[in-house]
């Protein structure tokens, strides 16, 4: 039923809860997990001398988040793949879900961008609205 499951990670506790739920489903259905992290555009600072450092920092942070997630999964027979992208989180999640033909997206209801979407995160709102596949929102 769920061959590949996308897990959206932003380093928040909620996204780790989401990962636990995704693992449980993956174990049950023998699904593949796709860990996705997106970091914001830095291209507006392209002219700055700090630009390359900033991007490198973002990538490093993203890799750390994915690495933490892999550690949390521990030794498991589940196939795990990852995607680290630059761009708005909701668009990144939706595009990965579409190109990799995911059967389920699992994500936290509110991650790091907590100020704007006080009750319900703006990223999870957008994803649950526009995704073509089922979406599980975890709190």
């Amino acid at each position: 039923m769920y061959a590949s499951i996308l897990v959206a990670l932003d380093g928040s506790d909620q996204s780790m809860f989401a990962l636990n739920h995704a693992r449980a489903i993956a174990q049950c259905f023998g699904s593949k997990l796709i860990l996705v992290h997106a970091f914001p555009h830095t291209s507006d600072l392209r002219d700055s001398i700090e630009y390359n450092n900033l991007v490198a920092l973002r990538i490093k942070r993203g890799e750390e988040i994915i690495e933490t997630a892999r550690k949390q999964l521990g030794r498991t027979s589940i196939k795990v793949d990852e995607d680290l992208l630059e761009g708005p989180a909701s668009e990144a999640i939706l595009s990965v879900a579409a190109t990799r033909k995911c059967d389920l997206i699992v994500m936290g209801s509110r991650g790091m961008g907590s100020v704007k979407g006080m009750v319900f995160g703006s990223v999870s709102t957008k994803v649950s609205h526009y995704a073509a596949c089922p979406v599980m929102v975890v709190r």
């Binding site: 739920h21 389920l104 209801s109 009750v119 319900f120 999870s124 709102t125 649950s128 995704a131 073509a132 596949c133 089922p134 979406v135 599980m136 929102v137 975890v138 709190r139």
Partner: peptide
């Protein structure tokens, strides 16, 4: 339900 639930919600399409 998505906004107010504290329990995970799976939206099916």
């Amino acid at each position: 339900v998505l906004t107010h639930s504290k329990i995970p919600v799976l939206v099916v399409r």
